[in-house]
């Protein structure tokens, strides 16, 4: 094993061509992950609340809609967004944006069910007590239900975000220069050290994901809810 290939290309692995070119490597992986984590969190909350507030046909339609994103591979959704976004918006969407949209939709549809489950886990007396105090359904949700439900959901949010970091590697297929893409680039250029390169890249992902996992575990212990592996 010869790890000089890592030290020679370290800045390329971590930052891509930046500051002389576009940001890439591990930094771009973090940017992709943080953006889609935020967007998927918002989507998850909105759809989760919608699941909790709808009944009958509207509820079923929403379940089917979210089920679609959970049933198809992330890769297929990236293909779809890559193809459809320019048609929908009428201009070329950069690869980074495409990946963020795809990851947020997938993450959001998984999180919607966690949010829904969190809201449902509270005793119905909470809603009734809020109604008795004169709060409307939206107010009850805002001031009574969500403040109690969100800490319960936090571990599933963190687990979903760990999954997002790993899924961001799929940006590779549409040529976005994040960590996995940069790894194959260096591997193809150097030709001789694929083992060292992919071990190092795996280690980087491992450090990012396992630190989040430790955080999720600590939060789960603090709030007394078990973190479910995703």
């Amino acid at each position: 094993m010869d790890f000089s290939v890592i030290t020679n290309n370290l800045s390329y692995f971590l930052l891509g061509a930046w500051p002389h070119g576009p940001l890439g490597g591990a930094a771009l992986t973090l940017v992709l992950s943080v953006c889609s984590a935020l967007a998927s969190g918002v989507l998850g909350l909105v759809f989760g609340v919608a699941l909790a507030m709808t009944h009958g046909a509207a509820h079923q339609a929403l379940v089917l809609f979210l089920g679609f994103f959970r049933a198809i591979p992330v890769l297929m959704l990236i293909f779809w967004t890559y193809f459809l976004l320019p048609i929908v918006f009428g201009f070329n969407v950069p690869g980074v944006g495409t990946v963020i949209v795809a990851l947020s939709l997938i993450g959001g549809s998984y999180l919607a069910h966690s949010v829904y489950a969190g809201i449902r886990s509270l005793p119905p007396g909470q809603w009734q007590a809020a109604a008795a105090l004169g709060l409307g359904r939206v107010q009850a949700l805002r001031y009574v239900i969500l403040p109690q439900a969100l800490p319960i959901m936090l571990p599933s949010f963190l687990n979903q975000w760990i999954a997002l970091i790993k899924d961001s590697s799929l940006a590779y297929v549409i040529g976005v220069g994040e960590l996995s893409f940069v790894a194959t680039q260096v591997s193809n250029r150097e030709m001789v050290y694929p083992t060292e390169i992919f071990l190092f890249v795996a280690l980087l992902y491992f450090l990012i994901c396992s630190s989040l996992e430790l955080g999720a575990g600590a939060i789960a212990r603090r709030y007394g809810t078990a973190a479910k592996p995703t």
Partner: peptide, 21 residues
């Protein structure tokens, strides 16, 4: 924890390119 916390894509690259080396 190693296999759960690294992307499948990187693992596949490792087995395909890295392990054979």
């Amino acid at each position: 924890s190693l296999f759960r916390n690294t992307p499948l894509l990187v693992q596949l690259f490792f087995w395909y390119f890295g392990f054979s080396a």
